[in-house]
Structures are given as C-alpha cells and as structure tokens.
Write a protein that binds this DNA or RNA. Structure first.
Lengths: 347, 347
DNA sequence: CGTTCCACTGAAAGCGATTTCAACCGAAAT
DNA sequence: ATTTCGGTTGAAATCGCTTTCAGTGGAACG
C-alpha cells in the first residue's frame, strides 16, 4: 500500500504509464473506456501523483508562493489586535489551490534585510513555484519586484493600486468611494468634505472620482473648497481636518482618504469638541483594526481579501496551465461596506 | 543565469557533482580547500538546490505540512476576534523552517468531511512531507491520527495533552497551575477553590497537582472540599461554581480548569452578586479570546504557541535528518502568565 | 618495499513524473 | 486495393538531485 506510483496504476489498469498521466492531467485524447479503467485503478490504489516528480519531469510545480512580511506578521500576532489580512488571504488562496490541485507555500521575507533580493531569488529557484502572490507592503517593494521579474515568475500584487509589473487584484476604489458618498448623501448630508489621499497613488484619484460622481448623481454641487489634499499620513490628516473643521460653514460629514487620515480627523474633531457622529459623520477606507476598535467604530469599506486571493490563485494557475505567461491585467473586485456608528444623519 | 543546476556549479568549481552535493548538505568528508572552492562557485552562480529534485533523488522532501481546520480558520477571521493560534504557530514554524532550509506548507482540512481520511492521505502521498504539525482540534481527531500513522510520517501534536501516537509539544500544565496558585497566594488568598478539569485529560491531573503543590509549598492546608470536579464544559462549570459559591465559607479565589469553566464561574458569580475581583478572584488556563475580552479580562496562562511550533519543526527536521523516525516523546515548554484584572487581594 | 587502510572524490544508477516522438489502427480518400 | 490521415497509445529520454559503490592516492604498517 505504501508508495503507490504511476507504474503501479499503469500495471493494474493494463495501460502504459503515459496513459495514466493523460488521465491524471485530464488530457482529451483518451477513450472514455480506457479513462474509466484507469480512474478505477487510481481510486482503488489511492494513488496521488508525486508533486516533486511532476515538477521535475514537467513544466509546472503545482506550487504557489505567498510572501509575507516578517515584521508585519510578528506585529500582528503580538499586538493581539493586528489586522487579519494575512489569514484572510491565506484562507482564500488555500481554498482555490485545493480546487486546482495546487499547494500554497507561505514564505517570510524581511523587507529591511540587505539579503532580501538573495532570499527571494533563493526561494524562487529552489521551489520554482508556478506563481507568487504579493501582499502589502511587499507588493510595493522595488527589490522584491525586481527579483520576481528577473526570475520570470508570474506574480499577482494584491490590494495595491500602484502601477508596476505583474498582475493586480484589488478592490474597486472608485465604486467604494461612490457608495460611501451615497451612504452619506442618503443620510441627508449635503456638505461632505473629502480629505484626498496622496496623489502618488492611483487609488486616491479613483476615490476622488467616485466621490464626485456620487455627488453629481445625487444632483448635489461639488464645492471644491471641501476637497482638501491629504497625504495618507496622520500629520497630513490633521492639517486637512483643521482646515475643514475650523470653517464657519464646516461640512456635516467627512470622507477620509484612508484610515490613518480618518484617525487624524477624529483627533481634530475631539479637540474642537465636535461630536462624532452627532455633529459630524466620518467614513473612511481600508478597515484596519484601529478603525474598527476606535470610539466610535468607523464606517469603512472592507476589502474582499479572501476573494482577491482566490482570484490571484486562479490567474496564476491559468497562466501556468497555458504558457507560464501572466498578462499585466488589473482586476477589480467588489467590496463590502461596513456601516458603523461613525455615520449618522446631519445635526 | 537562469536555471543554475548542480552541474553548472560542479563545472565552475572543477569538481564532481557529488562533491557539490556534499558541500550543500554539509557532509564532513570534504577538504576545507575544496569546500571553499565549491562554496565560491555556489555564491557566484547564486545556486540554490532544486527542492523537487532533492526530494526525488533523496529521502527527504524538506517540506513540513501543517494541517489547519477549515472551519476554525474561517471562524477565526470572520469573527474579527478569533484567537491567533494559527498565526502564531505559522510564524514560529516558518522561522525555524527557514533556519533548516525547510518550507512550511499549510493545508486546510475539514474534520466534518467524510472525505477526511482520503484528503489527508492524498496530501501526504503527493507531497511526502518529512513531517506534519497538528494543532487543536486536529490533533485529537482519530481519523487524522490514523491516516498519519498509516502513512508512517512523523508528526507532532501541538498543545494537546491527549495521549496517542506521535510526539507532543505543549506547555507545562503542572507548573502553570502552580504559578497561578502562587500568584493567588501571593495576593493573600488562603481559601482557593479549584474547579478541576475532565479526568480524561492528562492536563487536568497535572493542573490539580500543581495547585496542590503550590499550596503545600506555601504551608497552606488543602481543603479537599474546595476541589470540585468540572468537565471542561460550561454546564459542568456552572454546577461546580454553584457548589463552591453557595457555601457560607466560600473561597475568596477560584482557579478554573479551563476557560470555558471560568466563564461559567463568572456567570454564577454575577447571578449571586459576587463581584470579581473585589469579592472573588478568578484565574484560568488557555487564554482564549473570550477570556481576554471578558469583563473583567481574566488572569490566565498564555501558551507559547510560536515556541511550540518552533520546537515541533526542530523535532521533525532532526528526525528526517536521522532515520525518519520520531520518538513519541512529550515536550514541555515554559509559558507566560497573563496577569489581568480578575485577580486581586481578598476582601 | 609492498600491503593495508583510511580519507576523500567521482561515475553511474535511480527517483516518479512529463515530454517527445514513434507506432499503431481503422476510416476516408485515391 | 492501396495510400493517407487523424486520433490513440506506448517507449524512451529527460528533469536535477541523492545514493550506492567503485576508485584513487597517500600515510601507516609490517
């Protein structure tokens, strides 16, 4: 019973090794009759193809590598309230890997290490995965991207709007901003401030566009003075919030470009004694834990992490099955609105 | 530069393939001079041995599989407050894998599935890992254990005191109970109740022993009537707590056999209007999130999950390097006391 | 000085799949 | 009736490493 190989199956089914291989790989040119006989032998013997041999003989490894940042991972479980991005990514990826007969291999990398390029290259060359999944912050790291490109391994960047090599899978920032704005409009808000994100990121533009579009669709004018540039940092958020909230005709609601910015807005509001959500509604993006656990918890957009990972796996597997080339496409996935206590009708 | 194999290294270093292999595997019988020449070639070429070929040619696969329960995983990240056992396990395991040149492969299994045995067997026979790490609740599942035993793959059960095949790595329940009791004694408690755990589990006995030993060491008498049997369930905890707390000479502190029991004690205390920690101190084991987030948060023992995983990897790698046999040893690791608001000096 | 032995190095045979390519067979075409 | 062809099947080479075993040279020994 131990060590059942393709040869055993072939003997039992009285066919050649190659025919068994055809059945296992679902190749079309096998007569139904033979296929059935072979399948029966496989089932009876409990045969499962050896992945190492498959990799060595063929062109695929049936392996997908996910690089996780070591510091982030450590921070996550240390803090007891870390975001669960990695878990959700793994879960989604594993489920799809399973379906495709693939396996997910998680590797820790340290973006701060001077051995980073070497490390990535070693992992790739010893594992020779069919594809790599990158999550923030790895998917923005030039060293990692360069190493992947040099190794010519297909990869998907998850949850990052940054331009660059490899395919991208992320949520639809435009639609997210639109829906968040619609939510505020639906509550009765007319004057909605927007602390925009850093212009370097595509996501910022998309979010601003979504905001404008939602207002236009609601027949509301866009007051350009309510659009204040932020830069995704707390400090930037503070100045922007001060500008918005110290005006006599201050907005009744604010959309923050990201979570960090939102926390800054909360900070300023508290200082100015503006109650959230009674005097000011606040909504933001990303749904990091700090925002979920803040007082009050903030209304945000929740990224479909598991779904993104699933899609990433699908893309990589499809590429491997074809020619090992992955198009540089940009895939947008629907997201989830987390309506929480920070948004309410205007005063 | 692409696809550097051992042959290329051998040619560059002007030695045989076998010698390169010896250097890579750190075999002793290579002269320092040769070793250096080979190592230089390896570094210059950026060579990393192909894991698939290594597995196929040799007896090791350099792979360790960790089985995670699908439902638990899903529940964890859905609930937004799941315990981070899995993350911590992965982190610890990965770090050690890295050191040994191994790779960690996480696989989801569904304990409820009727395909469970098949699934486990398939994973093992296609991956042929050098070892398997089992976490609760997988490490108690007879189907999984049976499949592992039949496949003759070494495995480590983490965090479970249950007897059975495979090696175990867990915390020292005896010492944990002792320290928890000492903590209570240190606060000034003399009458400390103990709702013991289910007698089926070795951990229960160990905890009870630790409790007794701590009392003895402090020169306190053991009042046998303060030891009430629980069974690790909420209901069992309720009856035990009622028995303890309705006495006129009720204890000023209670040690609960596990977290579930502790929650039951809290429940009863609240009903009887006994304030924690003012009128009653409460401490427990396991540190599941429910206990961390309860009001007040409970003093507990925190399992050294990452360290246990690291040890598990070390054991498996050592076994693979030797003869592929893993002794059935039981390894105890030090733990961490989480002193929280549920324990205070007696009234 | 020849033999034995040890320490080191290398040649060749797998490991279990895929890939390539040749062989086969019956049906359609000539 | 023979050739041709498309669709199936199988034989053998191959992937990159380890394992096994044979060989080589020099020190130690009689």
């Amino acid at each position: 019973m131990r060590n059942v190989t393709i040869v055993h199956v072939a003997e039992k089914a009285r066919v050649s090794v190659k025919t068994v291989s055809r059945v296992v790989n679902n190749e079309p040119t096998v007569t139904p009759q033979l296929r059935e006989r072979v399948q029966a032998a496989i089932d009876q013997l409990g045969y499962a193809p050896n992945i190492a041999a498959r990799r060595l003989g063929g062109s695929r490894s049936f392996l997908i590598v996910a690089f996780n940042d070591r510091r982030l991972t450590l921070e996550n479980w240390r803090s007891d309230r870390g975001n669960n991005w990695i878990d959700r990514m793994q879960y989604g990826a594993m489920l799809r890997c399973d379906v495709h007969g693939y396996h997910l291999l998680c590797e820790l990398i340290d973006l701060e290490s001077d051995q980073l390029a070497r490390r990535v290259q070693h992992v790739l060359s010893s594992l020779r995965p069919d594809g790599v999944i990158l999550t923030p912050p790895n998917c923005e790291d030039p060293t990692v991207l360069e190493a992947l490109k040099r190794a010519q391994v297909p990869f998907v960047r998850m949850g990052s709007a940054a331009a660059g090599p490899g395919a991208r899978v992320r949520m639809d920032d435009h639609a997210a901003a639109r829906q968040l704005t619609e939510h505020l409009v639906g509550l009765g808000h007319h004057r909605i401030g927007f602390v925009t994100g850093s212009a370097r990121f595509l996501a910022s533009r998309a979010r601003e566009d979504g905001y404008r579009q939602a207002l236009a669709a609601a027949g509301l004018p866009v007051d350009e003075t309510l659009l204040v540039p932020g830069d995704f940092t707390f400090e930037g958020g503070v100045s922007a919030a001060e500008a918005l909230l110290s005006r006599p005709d201050r907005p009744t609601a604010i959309l923050a470009g990201n979570d960090e910015t939102a926390l800054a807005v909360m900070h300023v509001a508290r200082r100015l004694d503006i109650a959230i959500p009674n005097a000011l509604s606040l909504a933001t993006f990303d749904d990091t834990p700090s925002v979920r656990l803040s007082l009050p918890p903030l209304t945000t957009v929740r990224q479909p992490v598991a779904e993104m990972a699933a899609q990433a796996v699908d893309l990589l597997v499809a590429a491997a099955a074809k020619d090992g080339k992955l198009s540089r496409a940009d895939h947008l996935l629907p997201f989830e609105l987390a309506l929480r206590a920070s948004t309410a009708p205007p005063p």
